[in-house]
Design a protein around this nucleic acid. Structure first.
Lengths: 358, 358
DNA sequence: CAAAGCGGGTCTTTTTTTGTCCCATTTTTC
DNA sequence: GAAAAATGGGACAAAAAAAGACCCGCTTTG
């Protein structure tokens, strides 16, 4: 830690600078993803007064970073290029780069990317994470491979942000698991199809009714079509998946209160494509259904891209990932900082005031 | 110019940052050189209201950079280390590093150092320049060499800031010229003696009465003592000198109005150890006296360290230095920026508003 | 064509900043 | 050792900046 870092000096001399930079960066980023966007909408989004946001807008416009029209606000060319070029700097300035390195060592994974901001407070962070994950995904693609992707908002964002540029030939995209009852936009099937379209790849889907009995599943397994697609799923070389917390599952899908309590009793803290894990990463329960088997993941998968954000997900993330050299993590700042707290033993919620978060 | 520079992005996103940093840096630097220093004295120094300075002081104290006692304010250890470590960053941030490179090429000298700030507005800049020059001087020292140094405030600052640490053996310090009537602290003789003391070197002085006639000088030249020291001066391997403007000469020494007019008519813009130069660097007049001959400077001197600051000196500096690979320049930001304006043809005073100067 | 959303203007209120003192104390100076 | 000067800190009113809360005319959108 003898590396002399200018950033610390600057913050020491002018502690208000991180706040200023982060505030304006957030605004630019939001406009970037949501333009055209009005002044009032933006103020409501960040939950600040209309007038205070207006002042920021004025300076940003004076700097030529945004343009305003009757439709709303846009980023100028200069604004777009600034957002792009200042992001790596901000990451370093806010200590996210060292955070990435720490998590890399602590979790023993292949790669960690931390996106500035907290998903829980700023929704566009989801898109940023999706973009980052999409970039990594592209790097991992090899002709002829099978790519499995799970459901959830995070993976939907990956699909959204994936550019339509050309990709290696002969790729097949499949859902990691047959239909888990979600809204259609974040169902694994929908996402797999969208990803396939972006990559100009083929895809196979696995549509299943929700909440099937074990018997029904056994019957379905004997169907040739289903057997085929299941084999395909289990031969995936890349898996992209999000992470659910137990609470989230209960809320989003129709898990009853009693079932929820049973899960908690078993120690379930996180969920990945239908499997509930306890804090040690052991499977304690599963949603009935068909899809990826964990054993095959270990044997076949070369890359597992995990996308998750929000402070609340920290425990689940720790439970799910780690100790796998195949894992690539895309986190947001909120989750990443919280993970570090957890792993370093600071279980509490404190010590957050000194950190200026995006 | 395709080098992506974070600094420009930061300034684009938050144009108030340079002001903040520079303001606080100036305060810390002044306290560093003048502590203990009271709140009112400091406010008077920077010509700002007592209350506005107080607010800066409060934040600096909250940051643990300064401590206040009944004697006045001091830098804490943290404050001192900050000033030291943030200076190179600030130079880069304010564009002084690229300024140095530009001047290096334009003036074709060996080295250029630009110190943040303007001597005309902030006197401690003189000390900073002195320190920078002193550091360079130490690098140039070789055992047994003769070091000549001129008079003036700048060279006095060099002597002040020279650390007393050990130096090569057998060095002899001499004044570049025999007594030009100045206050004793900035006379070449005094400075030479002080430098010698700091370097633990020997020294020879050349005390002469002011305003001698040519005849008297000729007589003195035949004196063995004087001849000896003159030979010593003209064998100097290093010369440290400041630069005077014509106006300054007139003010500081007793040059009459008519004489001043005559100098101006001859095109004199700068003065170095008694020689008046026009804008082309040609000698147009000289103050009667004994000392260094310019021819010997070209033949013998390996290093000529020129120390000058303040926007007003720009023209004089351009006239005096340049095209000598032996020259090492120590400037302040005010002079340096002005020199660039002059050399690039922007003769006017404009375009200063966008630049935040220390 | 109407409703919603947009930027921009403008008013008052609130907060922050600044100017201007005074005071008790310490430090310096003579 | 006394007087003078300088120190930090407190206090308060004035000024300025920021923020809140509107309205208005316009464009866009459904």
């Amino acid at each position: 830690m003898m590396v002399s870092d200018n950033h610390e000096d600057i913050v020491l001399l002018a502690p208000e600078i991180p706040e200023i930079l982060v505030r304006r960066y957030k605004i630019l980023r939001k406009i970037y993803y949501s333009s055209p966007l009005g002044r009032r909408s933006l103020a409501a989004y960040f939950q600040v007064g209309e007038r205070v946001l207006r002042r920021e807008i004025e300076t940003l416009r004076e700097q030529g970073l945004i343009s305003v029209s009757s439709k709303g606000m846009f980023l100028t060319a200069s604004g777009k290029s600034l957002v792009a070029s200042i992001t790596p700097f901000l990451k370093s300035f806010l200590g996210l780069t060292v955070l990435e390195e720490k998590l890399l060592k602590l979790l023993k994974v292949k790669r960690v990317i931390v996106v500035p901001g907290d998903l829980e407070q700023d929704e566009v962070v989801l898109l940023e994470m999706g973009r980052a994950a999409a970039r990594i995904l592209r790097e991992c693609l090899v002709p002829g491979m099978v790519l499995a992707i799970s459901g959830g908002m995070s993976c939907a964002a990956v699909a959204d942000m994936l550019p339509e540029a050309g990709a290696p030939q002969g790729i097949t995209v499949v859902p990691a698991r047959g239909g888990l009852g979600e809204v259609v936009d974040s169902q694994a099937n929908t996402i797999a199809a969208r990803v396939a379209k972006k990559l100009k790849a083929s895809y196979r889907l696995l549509h299943l009714p929700d909440s099937l009995s074990q018997e029904a599943l056994q019957v379905l397994l004997r169907e040739k079509n289903i057997k085929e697609i299941l084999d395909l799923i289990n031969s995936a070389r890349i898996l992209v998946h999000g992470i659910g917390t137990a609470e989230e599952m209960a809320r989003r899908r129709g898990v009853s209160a009693e079932e929820m309590q049973r899960l908690r009793d078993k120690g379930a803290v996180g969920e990945v494509f239908g499997l509930f894990l306890n804090s040690k990463g052991e499977i304690v329960d599963r949603i009935p259904g068909l899809g990826l088997y964990l054993e095959n993941l270990s044997r076949k998968a070369h890359h597992v891209i995990v996308v998750a954000g929000g402070r609340q997900k920290a425990d689940a993330i720790v439970a799910v990932v780690g100790n796998h050299q195949r894992d690539l993590l895309v986190l947001d700042e909120g989750a990443a900082r919280r993970i570090l707290e957890v792993l370093e033993g600071f279980g509490g919620e404190g010590n957050r005031d000194t950190i200026v978060s995006v």
